[in-house]
């Protein structure tokens, strides 16, 4: 199992999960109202400073952005082609800030705290007879298994490369989907064996 949680003590770890989620939500809304490069530069500096406040391990986690570089490249090229290169840069800066801020929550928040903070959002579902805990648990499961799915894809790619010599192919998509379904079956079974998503306290 892979997890993205950063195992250490910091002021960001101690901050309640609800506060962190709220701050990121507010920041996202504000950022989408603005398009000043100076504000975004300040925002980027701010996010970097937050990672730096977690120490060396924190700064190392900035590397998650690598996964988005290709996507950013595409955005920039599209904007450049339509003659709005400058706006493209603004979009990329905005996304970078938001992505890094959201990732900061994942690496500094324990899963059960996150679940508890999310629970009130799903409260209205109670009126329809759906337990909010189920949805909160669903969100945690997504966060927990996203990196695991990437690992499965890497294994499939290795197996493919070992026999064909090429690394990527659309042919990997179908087996990947099957593996993902199988895995979710197994996880669901393990969860059910411990009382299921709604718990046993009824």
């Amino acid at each position: 199992m892979i997890s993205i949680y950063l195992d250490k003590e910091s002021w960001l770890h101690r901050l309640p999960a609800g506060v962190k989620l709220l701050v990121v939500a507010v920041v996202s809304i504000v950022l989408f109202q603005l398009d000043s490069v100076w504000v975004f530069l300040g925002g980027l500096a701010g996010v970097f400073a937050l990672y730096a406040s977690l120490g060396k391990d924190g700064l190392a986690r900035l590397s998650v952005i690598r996964g988005l570089l290709m996507f950013f490249g595409i955005v920039l090229v599209l904007h450049w082609l339509s003659g709005t290169f400058f706006e493209g840069i603004v979009v990329v800066m905005r996304l970078t800030i938001l992505f890094l801020a959201a990732n900061l929550i994942s690496i500094t928040t324990r899963m059960d705290d996150m679940m508890e903070a999310l629970m009130p959002l799903f409260k209205p579902l109670q009126w329809f007879g759906v337990q909010p805990r189920r949805f909160a648990l669903g969100v945690t499961l997504v966060l927990r298994f996203a990196p695991h799915l990437m690992q499965i894809f890497a294994i499939l790619r290795e197996a493919y490369q070992a026999r064909t010599g090429s690394r990527n192919s659309w042919r990997l998509l179908a087996p990947f989907a099957i593996h993902a379904l199988r895995m979710s079956d197994n996880v669901a079974e393990a969860l059910k064996a411990r009382g299921g998503s709604a718990g046993l306290s009824r």
Partner: peptide
């Protein structure tokens, strides 16, 4: 029930949370 693959059974990122989950399941 203990399964063959721990990766499919452990839901939470840290050991303490994983153990505590069973207790919250019981209320």
């Amino acid at each position: 029930f203990v399964f063959q693959n721990p990766d499919h059974q452990a839901i939470f990122p840290t050991v303490e949370e994983e153990i505590a989950f069973g207790l919250t399941q019981l209320g």
